[in-house]
């Protein structure tokens, strides 16, 4: 089974949200947020869409089958282009 990479922790930190806050918003156990962030559990489509909705971001900005590029490199590329 392929690994689903995600940026939940980054988005959550940006919104200064605790795992419990996020868990309450999407209706799961707070521990499940920890499992998702660590990549120990791949969410269903429904949960992925709920998370994307909370962060007001497209689902592909939150989840990817390929590892996300480091934020520093992405910013450098944006500045140079």
């Amino acid at each position: 089974m392929s690994v689903v990479h995600n940026r939940i922790a980054v988005f959550r930190a940006e919104m200064s949200m605790s795992r419990k806050d996020l868990a309450d918003l999407v209706g799961v156990n707070p521990q499940t947020i920890g499992y998702l962030e660590r990549g120990d559990y791949a969410p269903s489509v429904e949960l992925a869409l709920k998370l994307a909705d909370v962060f007001k971001a497209p689902v592909e900005a939150l989840f990817s089958l390929k590892p996300f590029a480091p934020l520093g490199r992405t910013l450098k590329e944006q500045r140079s282009s």
């Binding site: 605790s18 795992r19 419990k20 868990a23 521990q31 920890g34 499992y35």
Partner: peptide, 10 residues
Amino acid sequence: GKGEPEDEAE
């Protein structure tokens, strides 16, 4: 099973 539950308020 895998995974150690973490502090949920983190």
